[in-house]
Simulated assay, not measured.
Amino acid sequence: MMKIIKEFKEFAMKGNVIDLAVGVIIGGAFGKIVTSLVNDIIMPPVGAILGSVSFKHLKFYLVDTDTMTEEDLAKAPAIAYGQFINVLLDFLIVAFCIFMLIKVINVLRRKEKKAEEKPAEPTEKECPYCLSQVPIKATRCKHCTSQLEAAQHG
């Protein structure tokens, strides 16, 4: 039993598990913000433009509702397409935000990669007599022992 507890502790304390937990918590909070944005800011003006319609309450009832009371109407089977529109907008906004975040991350990675790809300063030069490679600061070739110009860099 102690071995299982020890293994679970090692698993739970790994960096990627903690990162994942933080991501899920931030993602949940971000989802709530987007839901509020859609329900409280975007949909009311859209509903007003479409004739003071609240999308939350748009439903297609599967039974005849002409003789039903408010209480029966709330229990009647219906396709809540207005709520679906709200959820779809939530998804599209979250997906767009994630897309933009990944796009920024990729741009930063490309810049970082370009900085890493810069060629290093040469450490060797070619001997003009035997064409062997010698250290750049060398004044004499180690292969043919020819005298090299000190200022020569390739």
Rank of each mutant, 00 (worst) to 15 (best):
M2L: 14
K3M: 06
I4Y: 07
I5E: 02
I5Y: 02
E10V: 03
F11K: 01
F11S: 02
A12E: 03
M13K: 03
M13A: 03
G15T: 10
D19G: 08
D19R: 02
G23F: 01
I26S: 03
I26G: 00
G27I: 00
K32S: 11
K32F: 10
I33Q: 09
V34S: 01
T35G: 15
L37P: 01
L37V: 07
V38G: 00
M43K: 02
G51R: 13
K56I: 11
K56G: 15
L58E: 09
F60T: 05
Y61N: 04
Y61G: 09
D64G: 04
T65P: 04
T65E: 07
T67F: 14
T67G: 10
M68A: 01
M68E: 00
T69S: 15
D72H: 04
L73C: 04
A74F: 10
A74V: 10
K75P: 00
A76G: 05
P77M: 10
G82L: 09
G82M: 11
Q83C: 05
Q83N: 05
F84T: 15
F84D: 12
N86W: 03
F91Y: 14
L92T: 12
F99S: 08
M100R: 01
L101Q: 01
L101I: 10
I102F: 12
K103L: 06
K103Q: 11
K103M: 05
N106I: 05
L108T: 00
L108I: 02
R109N: 05
K111L: 03
K113A: 00
K114A: 03
P119V: 04
E121I: 06
P122I: 14
T123R: 03
T123P: 07
E126P: 10
E126V: 15
P128K: 08
P128D: 03
C130E: 12
L131S: 15
L131H: 13
S132G: 12
V134N: 10
I136Q: 08
K137A: 13
K137L: 12
R140H: 11
R140W: 07
C141S: 13
K142T: 15
H143A: 11
T145K: 13
T145P: 08
S146T: 15
Q147S: 11
E149Q: 15
H153G: 09
H153M: 09
